[in-house]
Design a protein around this nucleic acid. Sequence first.
DNA 1: GTTTGCGATTAACCTCGATCATGACGATTC
DNA 2: GAATCGTCATGATCGAGGTTAATCGCAAAC
Lengths: 249, 249
Amino acid sequence: MLTDRFLRDRRGVSLEAGERARLEAAVSTTSTVEARRIIARAGEWLDQSTLLVEGIMSRYLDDRNGLRQLVAIHLPGDFVDLHAYPLKRLDHDVGTMTPATIAIVPHAELDAITEEMPELTRKLWFATLLDAAIHRAWLFRLGRLDAIGRVAHFFCETNVRLQSAGLSDGRRFNLGLTQADVAEICGLTTVHVNRVVRHLREEGLCIFRNGKVEILDAAKLARRGQFDPAYLYIDDPASPTPPDQRPRR
Amino acid sequence: MLTDRFLRDRRGVSLEAGERARLEAAVSTTSTVEARRIIARAGEWLDQSTLLVEGIMSRYLDDRNGLRQLVAIHLPGDFVDLHAYPLKRLDHDVGTMTPATIAIVPHAELDAITEEMPELTRKLWFATLLDAAIHRAWLFRLGRLDAIGRVAHFFCETNVRLQSAGLSDGRRFNLGLTQADVAEICGLTTVHVNRVVRHLREEGLCIFRNGKVEILDAAKLARRGQFDPAYLYIDDPASPTPPDQRPRR
DNA sequence: GTTTGCGATTAACCTCGATCATGACGATTC
DNA sequence: GAATCGTCATGATCGAGGTTAATCGCAAAC
């Protein structure tokens, strides 16, 4: 139940039934959290990690002036701060964007898993590196795209991720975010995000209103944001079989 | 020898002698590579990873116009594409910036390590998540800092990283990069990097000439780049003891 | 029915950094 | 010595996006 969406449709690393059961058993508690609550702060030492079941969470860094730069947003099925397991100490804050349901996994359980289940360990490792791959795409977004491209890229990415979580039909999805949130994600001001949103609407690419996104022209939107979903490592039956997908010796 | 600098001075995760020997034994070959060579391309399926022994390497994403956004630079001691072990397929290119010496570790060896040495596995996992933490700092740099701050932040980060590799005395270091390289890292044009470098020199913060950096006022430079080295997880004897550093049950 | 407050919207102005262009300098190579 | 190339340097111009501020719409609260 809780882990149903974790690593869903990820080629070669989706969980086996036994692995899923083991992970499920590792959950100590579940709870609901209000929107805009801080779950963990930079510098904290953690002995547990958070699996997001419902809602949207984020990770962010503060600058000197109190402004934030979001470095990740997390959707249902994401193991939000699994990386706190090897790192132990956080380098950023973690919080909810919308009301959320979370499951807590104590690091002692992860110790047991890494001792006993190397294959599952590699899959957990994979999950954290998927986050790193998304970080890289975000770096590209901030470093090489203009404002319109950044927002377009973000909407494309989120659409694909939500779709693989079963929360988007590929055309429209409910993103619980404000224009100000998108600004913190894309390194822009809210005022300019507003201009960009209007532009995307007037050009017939997509509509963002009341936290809901409707994609009008997916191909054009992806082109405008130079979006290629390869970095999300999602299992797409249409894509060619990997040349090197033989089982390990 | 080859792995001497790997995870050096990282609190709680530096390698034990036995672990280092095991990793050393996992190296299949070493080789030297010229500057500006591509080691691996996006989309490739890999069955080995690269440990950087000498020189500087980078990872980058290409945009449609052939421009690059660097997403990481790697210094001696870095396990450059260890993340390719769980991911198997790369989402970006990997290449040398300067002439380099590299050691190759087959993934089959890493399979064996993950089966037999869970503690070492967690340390390797840690190394990849350290890269992710650096990605996040880079996101902050691109999203929240102006041009001068970005370059200042980059010099501060690289100084600390090189110092922990024993390649900087904390005041000056040899970075084999050009102003154009710094531009690809900081999401700027070479022309503007040139102006920023002049500004930093005229303000007495640091001098960047012929690929060498000399830091004149470390405190001011760090302040200008809002640099705080916590995210590098380097063992600093002066810092307070972690509250939660008890051995695992 | 009024107040409160958040989020979206729009306008006016201005700055930072991109773009375009040109040239200097040093290190190859012929 | 001349030619070529990579890197550094600097000026002029321009536009994308920041800043500031005012307004509007709408839902919840009283």
